[in-house]
């Protein structure tokens, strides 16, 4: 078997005195949708931030495409092919939708390719096309989330990191967003690492899942197995 696209080996992260991630091992293969589940404060976002270089790791390794990236600064990681759609959406509020998407393609020079992806994103999220000249800060929560995902896609990463795309969004839009995630994964063969609290929605579209609790791996497995697992159902699915 070929080496995985992303591999975390015994990762530790500290926030000051707090040991937020305590020896996490995780593998993402090319073409997969992998989800990280867990409750508030379990370390999901911390894991994503350490992959994209936004926070320093204490020890352990992060391998991407066979190269170590755990000491690489955030802005260089994007050029390696990892893009993150941050939690809480974090679009550029005073730039238009169109300008936000342009910022996503900041590192790319091939105008034609960028235009093609832009059209692809507009076809995937027609709402954004309707509002392309509107300031991103004036969009609804769901639309901002779409924009954040589209913006991350615009850097054409090999690995797309999505941090809680369903957070604070109307259920009908959650479905649209998750459909779009699957669509990106299937048609563009883009690998996706999805962090979610909405465990049921995430497991439905994911190939595999990891469940973390207080910074440690609690359970891992195929999404179909996790969804039927009794413990998971009790703790995260509310059955």
């Amino acid at each position: 078997m070929s080496s995985p696209l992303l591999e975390l080996k015994n990762l530790h992260v500290h926030y000051g005195a707090i040991h937020a991630i305590q020896g996490l091992n995780l593998v993402v293969n090319e073409g997969e949708i992998v989800t990280i589940l867990g409750s508030n404060g379990a370390g999901k976002t911390t894991t994503l931030h350490s992959i994209s270089g936004l926070i320093p790791t204490s020890s352990g390794e992060i391998l991407f495409d066979g190269k170590r990236i755990d000491k690489t600064p955030a802005f260089k990681i994007v050029s390696h092919g990892i893009a993150q759609s941050p939690e809480g959406r974090m679009v550029f509020p005073d730039l238009t939708v169109f300008e936000n998407l342009e910022m996503g393609a900041y590192l790319r020079n091939n105008k034609e390719e960028v235009d093609k992806d832009l059209h692809y994103m507009f076809s995937l999220f027609p709402r954004l096309l309707e509002r392309k000249k509107q300031l991103a800060g004036t969009l609804s929560g769901g639309e901002q989330q779409m924009l954040a995902i589209a913006r991350a896609y615009m850097s054409k990463p090999k690995l797309l990191l999505l941090d809680e795309p369903s957070l604070g969004i109307a259920p009908i839009l959650v479905k649209a967003i998750f459909d779009a995630i699957v669509e990106i994964n299937k048609t563009k063969n883009m690998t996706i690492l999805l962090v979610e609290q909405n465990a049921f929605a995430a497991l439905k579209i994911a190939d595999r899942g990891y469940v973390i609790a207080t910074g440690e791996m609690f359970m891992e497995g195929k999404a179909d197995d996790l969804i039927t697992n009794e413990e998971i159902q009790k703790a995260y699915l509310g059955h």
Partner: peptide, 22 residues
Amino acid sequence: THGRAIISIREDEIAADSMGIY
């Protein structure tokens, strides 16, 4: 492009960082 990068820092530094802007 430089201007866009500078503006995006004002808008959201973390997001700018994760767009690949130094």
